[in-house]
Simulated assay, not measured.
Amino acid sequence: MKDQEKPLRIVLSGGGTGGHIYPALALAETIKQCSPDTKFLYIGSKRGLEKNIVPKFGYAFESLRIQGLKRSLSLDNIKTVYYLMTSIGKAKKMLKEFAPDVVIGTGGYVCAPVLYAAHLLNIPTIIHEQNSVAGVTNKLLSRFVDRICISFDDVRKDFAGQENKIVMTGNPRGQQVVTYLKEHPITSKSGVEVVIFGGSRGSEVINQAFVDAFDGLSDKPYHVTMISGAILYDDLLKALNGKKAKNITIVPYVDNMPELFAITDFVVCRSGATTLTELTALGLASLLIPSPYVTHNHQEANALSLVHQGAAEMILQKDLTGDAMVTVIDRYALDQTKRQKMAEEARKMGITNASNRIISIINDVL
């Protein structure tokens, strides 16, 4: 960071999902390592996950009431406009009191009033887009911010007219997981490890495909760790009806995914931006099953960015079966050459210094 007489003051904003929250926290972690005296304020929404997650990391937290527009005509949209206008005023007050040097938004509706208020106050602003399809909020804010950080080249088209602001940085989560593994190296590993999961809360569809695939996965010369999601764990065990296999372990949740990924050879998962950042940063071969229930189908677009480079395979959810899952897992778990080739292509796409790149941008806009 630039030498300053006073500690740098940074406002972070991002909310709704972990995909917006954790990149902001990963960036803050790296900035603190570089400049321990940096002061942070995180502005989130009253109803988002960030209100519970951020304080656990020790950062000051303020909240605004905000919600997204409905796609159909709705009285709720009148409330949305009202919340937006009042939140801009509240955000301006928060920013004046905290007096940040820079404001950084990582996506979600709450970023709109915070970043726009910073623009009105002539405070330098940066947004970060994690996906290969830009979120509505970031698209709207792109006209008002100083820099636009991206993780996928494909998203450039969504910021037409703002090309001079765009910088490819990658996702700070990638640098975080690589740094973690350097600090906590795995000293031993036995056999090929396959990990299947459907996100932090699990996926009923992926869990059912695993149930259908169980017999086909049993007694293979590789180990499978199935992460069901905490709320779906009992249902999964019930669906298996007592079936067990020596090479299959079923757990409800894993607190430290980087530690598990360190011994993993092949992954079956959704294609959220944070997950793909981890896979590419660590160079892991994967089968991606995009969730069709996300805005603008961005998970499929994310997955295709890897598929087109030979860095992953993809099965659409509508085509997912137990047999299809087993076929792809066998293809890579049983063939080291194919697996290593895919892993190398994934590694080529990984950016493992995203936070450092964003720090350079912060220095540039100050």
Rank of each mutant, 00 (worst) to 15 (best):
Lys220Glu: 10
Val136Met: 15
Val224Gln: 12
Ile248Asp: 00
Thr169Lys: 09
Cys269Arg: 04
Ile148Pro: 04
Ile186Leu: 15
Lys244Glu: 01
Phe214Lys: 03
Ala346Gly: 08
Gly216Cys: 02
Ala285Lys: 10
Pro100Arg: 06
Gln176Tyr: 12
Gln309Cys: 09
Ile206Leu: 14
Arg9Cys: 00
Ala333Tyr: 08
Met226Thr: 00
Leu279Cys: 07
Glu278Trp: 07
Arg143Phe: 13
Lys246Gln: 10
Ala60Ser: 14
Ala134Pro: 03
Tyr42Ile: 12
Lys238Cys: 05
Asp215Gln: 07
Phe159Tyr: 11
Asp3Met: 01
Ser190Phe: 09
Gly202Ala: 09
Asp158Cys: 04
Tyr109Met: 10
Ala209Asn: 06
Thr274Phe: 06
Ile10Val: 13
Tyr22Ala: 11
Gly350Ile: 13
Asp3Gln: 02
Pro252Gly: 06
Ser142Asn: 10
Lys51Ile: 12
Gly135Ala: 04
Gln309Glu: 09
Gly19Asp: 05
Pro7Gln: 12
Leu12Arg: 13
Lys318Arg: 06
Asp364Trp: 00
Phe57Val: 08
Gly107Ser: 01
Ala239Lys: 14
Asp319Cys: 05
Gly191Leu: 08
Tyr83Phe: 15
Leu236Lys: 04
Ile88Trp: 11
His298Phe: 00
Asp319His: 04
Val103Met: 09
His119Leu: 00
Tyr180His: 13
Gly15Asn: 08
Val326Arg: 03
Phe40Ile: 06
Ala273Thr: 02
Gly229Ser: 14
Gly89Asn: 11
Val155Pro: 02
Tyr116Ala: 00
Ala285Gln: 12
Gln340Phe: 08
Ser188Lys: 14
Thr187Gly: 12
Gln175Arg: 01
Gln176Ala: 14
Gln336Trp: 03
Thr80Trp: 10
Thr249Trp: 08
Ser13Met: 09
Leu316Asn: 01
Pro7Gly: 07
Thr80Glu: 11
Tyr59Gln: 03
Val11Phe: 11
Ala117Gln: 02
Asp101His: 02
Asp154Thr: 05
Ala213Asp: 00
Tyr109Asp: 10
Lys92Pro: 01
Gln67Leu: 13
Leu366Pro: 04
Gln336Cys: 00
Lys338Phe: 02
Pro124Leu: 04
Asp76Tyr: 15
Thr275Arg: 02
Phe266Cys: 10
Ala112Glu: 07
Met85Phe: 15
Asn171Thr: 03
Ser286Asn: 03
Asn138Thr: 02
Lys182Glu: 15
His128Ser: 03
Pro124Lys: 01
